[in-house]
Computed example of a mutant assay.
Amino acid sequence: MYPKINDVLYIQLDTGDEKEAKIVYKSRISDMDDESMYMEVPLQEGTGRLKKLFIGDELSAYFLSEGGVKNYFNSYVLSHHEDIIRLVRIKKPDPDQITKVQRRSFLRVQAELEVAVIAKDGTQFLTKTDDVGGGGVSFHLKPGQSISEGSLLTCWVLIPYKNGAVEHVPFEGEVVRVKQLPTNRSIVMLKFNHIVDMERQKLIRYCFERQFDFRNR
Rank of each mutant, 00 (worst) to 15 (best):
R103N: 10
M1C: 00
D131V: 05
P143D: 06
D14A: 11
V8R: 14
I29P: 02
Q102K: 10
D121M: 04
Q124K: 12
V24L: 07
V137T: 06
V24A: 02
F125L: 05
T129Q: 08
K120E: 15
L203H: 10
S138W: 03
N71R: 15
E114G: 10
H80D: 07
Y25F: 11
R86W: 05
L9H: 05
L87S: 01
D94S: 10
D34Q: 09
E199T: 03
S151F: 12
L158K: 13
K4P: 02
F63T: 06
C155V: 04
G56R: 03
V166E: 15
E174W: 03
H81G: 00
V178H: 06
K92T: 01
A165S: 09
P182L: 09
S60T: 14
Q145R: 10
K191Q: 10
K100P: 05
I5V: 14
D31Q: 08
V175N: 06
I29M: 09
R177A: 05
E209S: 09
R185P: 03
D130S: 12
G122T: 05
G150V: 08
T123M: 05
L113M: 15
A116F: 15
G136V: 01
I85D: 10
T99D: 11
H140G: 00
K120W: 08
M1A: 04
M1D: 04
L203C: 09
G67A: 03
Q201D: 12
T154E: 14
F63V: 08
K100E: 15
Q180M: 11
V41D: 01
D96Q: 10
F125M: 04
Y72H: 13
L59I: 11
V117I: 14
L152V: 15
S36L: 04
G133C: 08
K19N: 12
E58N: 13
D94R: 09
L78N: 13
D94V: 00
L158T: 11
G135Q: 08
N163L: 00
A21T: 05
L9K: 03
I90T: 01
N193Q: 13
D197F: 08
N163F: 00
P93H: 06
H140C: 00
G173C: 06
L87C: 01
S146Y: 13
L59M: 14
L53A: 05
E199Q: 13
A116R: 11
E167P: 02
